[in-house]
Structures are given as structure tokens and as C-alpha cells.
Design a protein around this nucleic acid. Structure first.
Length: 264
DNA sequence: TGCCAGGCAGACA
DNA sequence: TGTCTGCATGGC
């Protein structure tokens, strides 16, 4: 006989665990057995969705997951604002239910450094190797990575990004870059702080601020968003109309463009 | 087999 | 200030 830690969290109508996890904002969930596996804090967590309920096996830390999945935000209200835009309304109809996850800031920083000029399956592979080799399955901390050399890191096959990972870890560990107080800064100051790190430019900084520091007005522009903007908004897009949630609109645009296989 | 990927740094005009 | 090119590696 065994006992499993188990809990359930009720979401608003329309929430989609699948859209949230598979929309390219996080890279450590592994799809398996009708749900998703995630290793965190040395523990394996299994997440599924039934109706409006998310079932979590392997953790009883309700407060953590309510925060992680952004339950403090009124997404029904946000989607209503975003749906005033016809393209985003269509995206919500097609791949609806996306929440912006509140991810740990150092993990988000390293993940999006790895994402540059890369594809999602390979990003996941590199991050999994990073966790397996240096974090006992969980995401390694800055102090651990700061001690490594490029040769040490070569096992994860991050390529030219290895030196960027080390620079980020070392500047985080030394305090030269204060990634833990970004929320107290305005957007430009926070982005400038992140861009002190080699390998962090406008796009990576905006992803880190959106997915790791709750700057919901951040609007990362990558190749897919460029395609989507050229296709759907040839006259240009007014981000102000999204009422401070342009980042949520961006995530819909990104996931929608990929889902329909948008080509130019 | 070749193009491309949730970009960026460095060189150059 | 803006444009161009090389970068490691592997998915498709």
C-alpha cells in the first residue's frame, strides 16, 4: 500500500493546461500518459486537467501552483479586452485558455538564452541535459552553474550559447546583475539590467520579463511574431489597446501562428 | 541534403 | 545608427 500526495485546483471556465504548457513559454514539462510531468525540488510532479480542474500528483503545495498558474489574474476579463481585436479573438477561439506562467526568474533567464536561434524540441533537450547533469533533475541554481567551465557545459550541447549561460550565472551569483529585483523597476530599467548579460538582447529580455517577472505588457518579437504581424497587421499593431496585457496577446499570436502553420 | 530555429555580438559603412 | 554575417547543433 502506498500514499500519494494529491491536490486539485479549480480554474475559470475556458482554462487550458494544454495551451498554456504547449504554447512555448516553458520547456521542462514532458507530455506523458495524458498529462505532463515536471521535476521540481527533487520531486516528480504529474499534472492533468479534467474540465475546469487541474489535478496535481506529487505535491501538496497549493499556494505555489496557484501562483505558478497565475490564478490571481482575471483571465476572463483579460480575454474580453483582448477579444476586441479580431485576430486575437480568432486565436482565443482556436487555441484558447492560455495563462502566462509565473516561472522562476533564473530558470526563465537561462531557458530563453538557450532558446535563441534554436527550435523548441532542441531547447527542451538542452534544458533536460542541463537539469540531469547539474541539477539532479531539477533546474540548477546560479551558484552551481557559475562554478562550471565551458568544457564542463559541453555535455549539454548548447553550442555558442554555453558562454552566455555561464555569463548569466556568474553575473547573477556575483550580484552584478540583480535579476531578483526586476519587478521593482520600470520596463526599460529591468530590460537594461538583463542586457548587461552577454547573449541577452531585446527579445530574450522581453521573454524573461513576461514569463519570469510578470511584465504583462512585454511583447517579445521573434520570427513567428514577425510573420504574424506581417500577415495579420500589415498596417501595424497598436499594443496600447490590449490594456497592459500585450504580452498575453503576444502569446496567443505566437501559439496561433504556429498552430495554423502560418507561412509568408 | 539543406533550410531553419522564441537572436545576438561584433564588424563595418 | 543601421545593416550584414558568423555562430553550434540538430529538427524537419
Amino acid at each position: 500500500m502506498f500514499w500519494r500526495i494529491f491536490m486539485q485546483i479549480i480554474f475559470e471556465k475556458g482554462f487550458s493546461l494544454k495551451s498554456t504548457i504547449e504554447s512555448g513559454q516553458c520547456f521542462r514539462f514532458m507530455e506523458t500518459d495524458g498529462g505532463y510531468n515536471l521535476k521540481m525540488g527533487g520531486r516528480s510532479v504529474f499534472v492533468t486537467q479534467t474540465g475546469n480542474t487541474v489535478n496535481i500528483t506529487g505535491s501538496d503545495d497549493e499556494a505555489f501552483f496557484e501562483n505558478y498558474f497565475g490564478l490571481d489574474l482575471d483571465y476572463a476579463k483579460i480575454n474580453k479586452i483582448l477579444s476586441k481585436d479580431a485576430v486575437i479573438a480568432r486565436a482565443i477561439k482556436t487555441v484558447g485558455g492560455i495563462h502566462i506562467l509565473k516561472q522562476e526568474i533564473f530558470e526563465t533567464l537561462i531557458s530563453f538564452i538557450i532558446s535563441q536561434n534554436n527550435n523548441i524540441p532542441r531547447i527542451k533537450k538542452i534544458i533536460a541535459a542541463l537539469c540531469d547533469n547539474f541539477g539532479e533533475g531539477s533546474f540548477p541554481d546560479a551558484a552551481t552553474l557559475a562554478r562550471l567551465s565551458e568544457t564542463d557545459l559541453s555535455v549539454i550541447k548548447a553550442g555558442f550559447r554555453a558562454k552566455y549561460i555561464l555569463d548569466a550565472a556568474r553575473k547573477t551569483e556575483s550580484g552584478e546583475v540583480d535579476i531578483y529585483n526586476l519587478k521593482g523597476m520600470d520596463y526599460d530599467a529591468a530590460a537594461a539590467e538583463l542586457k548587461k548579460i552577454k547573449g541577452v538582447g531585446d527579445k530574450v529580455a522581453s521573454c524573461v520579463l513576461l514569463f519570469g517577472a510578470q511584465f504583462y505588457d512585454a511583447f517579445p518579437i521573434d520570427v513567428w511574431i514577425k510573420k504574424a504581424l506581417a500577415h495579420f497587421y500589415p498596417q501595424g499593431i497598436e499594443l496600447e489597446k490590449f490594456g497592459g496585457y500585450a504580452g498575453v496577446a503576444q502569446q496567443y499570436l505566437f501559439h496561433y501562428a504556429r498552430t495554423i502553420g502560418l507561412v509568408l
